[in-house]
Computed example of a mutant assay.
Amino acid sequence: MGIGDAQVSAEDLETVTQQLGRTPRGTRAIASRCPSGHPNVVQTDPRLPDGTPFPTLYYLTCPKLNSLVSTLESGGLMKEQTERLATDEELAAAYLRAHESYLAERDAIESLGTQVTAGGMPGRVKCLHVHVAHALAKGPGVNPMGDEALALLKAQELWPAGDCAETAAG
């Protein structure tokens, strides 16, 4: 599934509400699903229903994945990634392309009149959750920071596993 999901079902909205512990705002689409089939990333409108600008186009909703990404953040991954941006020209160029792609996609929905995207792009890594959400929504090769975080979780056999990988029918 993914961004092609034109309609967000009532069941999906209820799942996301349970995941977040609150009613989601500005949900446009389910951008990615865990192997079990439940949403793990939503695509949001560039403006919330009350008109507030919301530059975060992709929002991570899966509680298990959120927790695992928080562990990577607290372990210093964002600092290490930001430091590499200053010395690795190829990584910095790929990260700039991720920023430009994110901005173009959001602006195609509605321009906020700003070059601010999300997660610190393109100069630093500020929120790994945003990068993981972007990587899951767009697939490998678009957001190098999100791809790296997902690869670390998979290498450590932390995700997908457990509740996220349970069959929805089970």
Rank of each mutant, 00 (worst) to 15 (best):
V132P: 00
E89P: 02
V130I: 10
G75N: 15
A135L: 11
H131G: 05
A31M: 10
G139M: 14
S70A: 15
P39F: 09
A108W: 04
H99A: 03
D50Y: 02
R47C: 06
A29S: 11
Q115Y: 05
P160E: 12
S101C: 08
P122W: 04
H129A: 11
L91D: 08
E83V: 04
D88C: 08
T82V: 09
A133Y: 10
V116W: 04
L136A: 03
T71E: 14
G139I: 12
A151K: 13
C127M: 02
L72Q: 11
S67F: 08
L103N: 12
L85P: 14
Y58L: 07
T27F: 01
L153M: 11
A86W: 12
P140T: 14
A31Y: 08
A29R: 07
L85D: 12
S70D: 15
G76W: 04
V130T: 11
A104Q: 15
L91Y: 13
G76A: 06
L85I: 08
M121G: 06
S36N: 15
A137Q: 03
D50R: 06
E157A: 08
Y95N: 11
H38K: 14
L85W: 08
Y95I: 08
M78D: 08
R97C: 06
G123I: 01
T56N: 03
T61I: 06
R106I: 10
S67P: 05
T61D: 14
N40K: 01
R28M: 15
G119I: 05
P55K: 05
S67W: 06
A104W: 07
P140L: 10
A86G: 02
T87C: 05
C34N: 12
R47Q: 11
E157R: 09
